[in-house]
Design a protein around this nucleic acid. Structure first.
Lengths: 216, 216
DNA sequence: GCACCCTAGGTTGCACACAACATCGGGACG
DNA sequence: CGTCCCGATGTTGTGTGCAACCTAGGGTGC
């Protein structure tokens, strides 16, 4: 009993999403239904359903009778995504100050500190591991905001791992700043200061935008 | 040739969305696949696809083996939705100031004035007609922002007609304010003043929130 | 009288088959 | 030599059948 979710469409969805987010499916790549179905040992039906949902998320684009392609993000798209993040994530972060329990904060701090370790220059540096931890950090923060509509708005636009697919683009100074921001956010939350926490998040995103999309 | 989109799933999607938004399908109502398929003269397959997409939009909720239900919005949900709108729509409105052409503004102004006519107390008052016009006004404004990511974030959360399903909830003073806001937004855009336009949008949403969800 | 089980009905989930459409190649014509 | 037409091929779109699952109702044992 390998606790399979049993639902075939869920598996197809998870698999395709992971493949896109991990970069196994390059941007612009064609995603065939039969090909995917055979790879997963399913029929086309659940694969179709998964593709439909991914299209709604914006990860793939569907063209009639021409199939699905992994969405290609232009520089302007990235910039627009950061606009949305800047409008919503600081607000969510501020709200988290009201709802986070000490246990939540401990978990966040553990994540933030672990990321600092992994990001520190040296033999133990592991920039690839940062991607998942970063995703986790932001996801937890968003959850702590207790604002489902806000989370939904973000989720459907900002596919963090597509945006932050790698930390290799960061120069050492920017990377250090970014990881320090995480720690500072936790500190602000511990102080119960939503404004502070939100401000740090704005810095965090500004820093990231500069790295990812370049000067404005 | 009645320019039917030919695509069955598109028809199912459009029909179901309209049914939900117009209130023909009440919140919480069960949407059966066979029932819908028979009503539209289609098979279950395109209906399934339509339901999947509606679920991604948040208009219906899918439970495994239990089918689809029209999403029910709680007071807190509504409040959260207004939070998102307040974070994004003023920004979009401000951006519209940069991109709108005189022709765009003329079209917007025509809409705004028509809404004032239809909303004015008297025998010609038609509150129901306002719903579609209002949807159109906000949609055009959003389009003028030239910010696809922002529009996507909003679209997937704020189903205007679900939120603003009716203008009957407005008291006369609030209604007059709301309709005046539309006109003022156009004026601000004509002046090329994005900050002003954004501020009016904030007022507009604040007014709407007070009416729709009550005092904070 | 109450709790539990078990069967029957109806719904969704998936697989498969066929039809419609888009693309790409060769061949004929100008 | 270039252009247009047309068929071959592979893809997606839709219809249908069956299996899995959830839910409700009656019956049985306590």
């Amino acid at each position: 009993m390998t606790s399979t979710t049993a639902r075939a469409s869920e598996r197809a969805l998870a698999d395709l999403r992971a493949a896109i987010l991990d970069g196994d499916l390059a941007a612009g790549a064609h995603v065939g239904e039969v090909e995917t179905a055979e790879r997963l040992g399913l029929s086309r039906t659940p694969v179709r359903e998964a593709l439909t949902r991914l299209a709604a998320e914006g990860l793939v684009e569907l063209e009639a009778h021409r199939g699905a392609r992994v969405t290609r993000f232009s520089r302007d798209d990235l910039d627009g995504i950061f606009d949305v993040r800047l409008a919503l994530e600081p607000r969510a972060t501020a709200r988290a100050a009201t709802h986070a329990t000490p246990a939540d904060l401990d978990a966040l701090e553990a994540l933030a500190r672990r990321m600092q370790e992994l990001g520190a220059p040296g033999p133990d540096q592991d920039l690839d591991a940062l991607v998942d931890l970063n995703r986790d950090f932001h996801a937890r923060l968003l959850e702590l905001a207790h604002a489902p509509a806000l989370a939904a708005a973000l989720a459907n636009v900002v596919h963090t791992p597509v945006v932050t697919r790698t930390f290799r683009a960061y120069d050492p100074a920017s990377l250090a700043r970014s990881l320090a921001h995480h720690v500072e956010i936790v500190a602000a939350l511990r102080a119960g200061d939503g404004d502070w926490a939100g401000a740090v998040m704005r810095c965090h995103l500004g820093n990231a935008r500069a790295v990812m999309v370049g000067p404005r």
